[in-house]
Protein backbone atom coordinates (compact mmCIF):
# COMPACT_ATOMS: atom_id res chain seq x y z
CA UNK A 1 0.00 0.00 0.00
CA UNK A 2 2.22 2.77 -1.19
CA UNK A 3 0.59 6.03 -1.84
CA UNK A 4 2.06 9.45 -2.26
CA UNK A 5 0.68 12.33 -0.30
CA UNK A 6 1.40 15.98 -0.04
CA UNK A 7 1.12 17.45 3.42
CA UNK A 8 0.97 21.20 3.43
CA UNK A 9 0.85 22.90 6.77
CA UNK A 10 1.04 26.43 8.08
CA UNK A 11 2.86 27.33 11.26
CA UNK A 12 2.58 30.60 13.13
CA UNK A 13 4.64 33.40 11.61
CA UNK A 14 6.62 33.99 14.80
CA UNK A 15 7.95 30.46 15.00
CA UNK A 16 11.74 30.27 15.15
CA UNK A 17 13.71 28.52 12.47
CA UNK A 18 15.15 25.93 14.89
CA UNK A 19 11.69 25.08 16.18
CA UNK A 20 10.52 24.51 12.63
CA UNK A 21 13.48 22.21 12.09
CA UNK A 22 12.58 20.35 15.25
CA UNK A 23 8.97 19.95 14.17
CA UNK A 24 9.95 18.74 10.72
CA UNK A 25 12.43 16.23 12.10
CA UNK A 26 9.84 14.83 14.52
CA UNK A 27 7.48 14.39 11.59
CA UNK A 28 10.25 12.70 9.65
CA UNK A 29 10.91 10.25 12.47
CA UNK A 30 7.19 9.54 12.64
CA UNK A 31 7.21 8.77 8.93
CA UNK A 32 10.20 6.48 9.34
CA UNK A 33 8.51 4.71 12.28
CA UNK A 34 5.55 3.82 10.04
CA UNK A 35 7.92 2.54 7.36
CA UNK A 36 7.11 5.47 5.12
CA UNK A 37 9.40 7.61 3.05
CA UNK A 38 9.88 11.36 3.05
CA UNK A 39 10.37 12.32 -0.55
CA UNK A 40 10.88 16.02 -0.12
CA UNK A 41 10.55 18.85 2.35
CA UNK A 42 9.95 22.28 0.94
CA UNK A 43 9.73 25.45 2.96
CA UNK A 44 7.62 27.85 1.01
CA UNK A 45 8.39 30.68 3.38
CA UNK A 46 6.19 33.30 4.92
CA UNK A 47 3.03 34.12 3.02
CA UNK A 48 0.03 36.29 3.57
CA UNK A 49 -3.01 34.19 4.41
CA UNK A 50 -6.13 34.66 2.33
CA UNK A 51 -8.16 34.93 5.52
CA UNK A 52 -7.39 35.12 9.22
CA UNK A 53 -6.62 31.83 10.89
CA UNK A 54 -6.46 31.88 14.68
CA UNK A 55 -6.03 35.63 14.51
CA UNK A 56 -2.98 35.36 12.29
CA UNK A 57 -2.71 37.15 8.99
CA UNK A 58 0.55 35.55 7.93
CA UNK A 59 1.91 32.06 8.14
CA UNK A 60 4.95 30.02 7.28
CA UNK A 61 4.05 27.36 4.72
CA UNK A 62 5.80 24.01 4.71
CA UNK A 63 5.21 21.31 2.11
CA UNK A 64 6.02 17.71 2.87
CA UNK A 65 5.80 14.95 0.28
CA UNK A 66 5.59 11.49 1.82
CA UNK A 67 5.06 7.99 0.62
CA UNK A 68 3.18 5.53 2.75
CA UNK A 69 -0.18 4.15 3.74
CA UNK A 70 -3.25 5.72 5.23
CA UNK A 71 -2.21 4.85 8.77
CA UNK A 72 0.86 6.99 8.42
CA UNK A 73 -1.21 9.95 7.28
CA UNK A 74 -3.56 9.42 10.19
CA UNK A 75 -0.61 9.58 12.57
CA UNK A 76 0.91 12.64 10.90
CA UNK A 77 -2.38 14.50 10.95
CA UNK A 78 -2.86 13.63 14.61
CA UNK A 79 0.58 15.03 15.35
CA UNK A 80 -0.09 18.21 13.41
CA UNK A 81 -3.38 18.64 15.21
CA UNK A 82 -1.78 18.47 18.65
CA UNK A 83 1.21 20.61 17.70
CA UNK A 84 0.26 24.03 18.95
CA UNK A 85 2.19 26.25 16.45
CA UNK A 86 0.60 24.52 13.46
CA UNK A 87 -2.43 26.61 12.57
CA UNK A 88 -3.66 24.77 9.47
CA UNK A 89 -2.84 21.72 7.41
CA UNK A 90 -4.04 19.95 4.29
CA UNK A 91 -3.27 16.50 2.98
CA UNK A 92 -3.72 15.70 -0.69
CA UNK A 93 -3.12 12.37 -2.32
CA UNK A 94 -1.09 12.94 -5.46
CA UNK A 95 -0.07 9.55 -6.83
CA UNK A 96 -3.17 9.00 -8.94
CA UNK A 97 -3.02 12.48 -10.45
CA UNK A 98 0.68 11.94 -11.13
CA UNK A 99 -0.09 8.65 -12.83
CA UNK A 100 -2.64 10.36 -15.03
CA UNK A 101 -0.19 13.12 -15.94
CA UNK A 102 2.54 10.60 -16.73
CA UNK A 103 0.14 8.76 -18.98
CA UNK A 104 -0.76 11.92 -20.87
CA UNK A 105 2.91 12.79 -21.18
CA UNK A 106 3.74 9.33 -22.50
CA UNK A 107 1.00 9.60 -25.11
CA UNK A 108 2.23 13.03 -26.11
CA UNK A 109 5.81 11.84 -26.42
CA UNK A 110 4.76 8.85 -28.45
CA UNK A 111 2.77 11.08 -30.78
CA UNK A 112 5.66 13.49 -31.17
CA UNK A 113 8.01 10.63 -31.97
CA UNK A 114 5.61 9.19 -34.50
CA UNK A 115 4.95 12.54 -36.15
CA UNK A 116 8.52 13.85 -36.24
CA UNK A 117 10.07 11.63 -38.98
CA UNK A 118 7.06 11.89 -41.28
CA UNK A 119 6.23 15.58 -41.22
CA UNK A 120 8.91 17.57 -39.43
CA UNK A 121 7.66 20.81 -41.01
CA UNK A 122 4.22 20.43 -39.51
CA UNK A 123 5.59 19.84 -36.04
CA UNK A 124 7.85 22.86 -36.39
CA UNK A 125 4.88 24.93 -37.44
CA UNK A 126 2.88 23.70 -34.51
CA UNK A 127 5.47 24.39 -31.86
CA UNK A 128 5.43 28.22 -31.96
CA UNK A 129 1.65 28.25 -31.99
CA UNK A 130 1.57 26.13 -28.87
CA UNK A 131 4.02 28.35 -27.04
CA UNK A 132 2.32 31.58 -28.09
Amino acid sequence: MNRTYELMFIVRPDMAEEEQDKLISTLETAVAASSGLVKSVERMGKRRLAYTVRKFHDGIYVLLTVEGGGGLIHELERRLRVTEPVIKFLTVRIDEEQKRLDKIKAIKDAKRKAAAPVTPAEVAGEAPAATA
Partner: peptide, 16 residues
Protein backbone atom coordinates in the same frame (compact mmCIF):
# COMPACT_ATOMS: atom_id res chain seq x y z
CA UNK B 1 -11.51 24.41 -2.99
CA UNK B 2 -8.28 22.79 -1.83
CA UNK B 3 -6.49 26.13 -2.10
CA UNK B 4 -9.22 27.72 -0.03
CA UNK B 5 -8.79 25.18 2.69
CA UNK B 6 -5.11 25.95 3.11
CA UNK B 7 -5.70 29.73 3.05
CA UNK B 8 -4.14 30.29 -0.35
CA UNK B 9 -7.40 31.61 -1.76
CA UNK B 10 -10.19 33.32 0.13
CA UNK B 11 -13.57 31.73 0.76
CA UNK B 12 -15.18 35.14 0.39
CA UNK B 13 -13.92 38.56 -0.54
CA UNK B 14 -10.47 39.68 -1.48
CA UNK B 15 -7.40 38.21 0.11
CA UNK B 16 -7.05 40.03 3.40
Amino acid sequence: KQARNIALLPFAGRAA
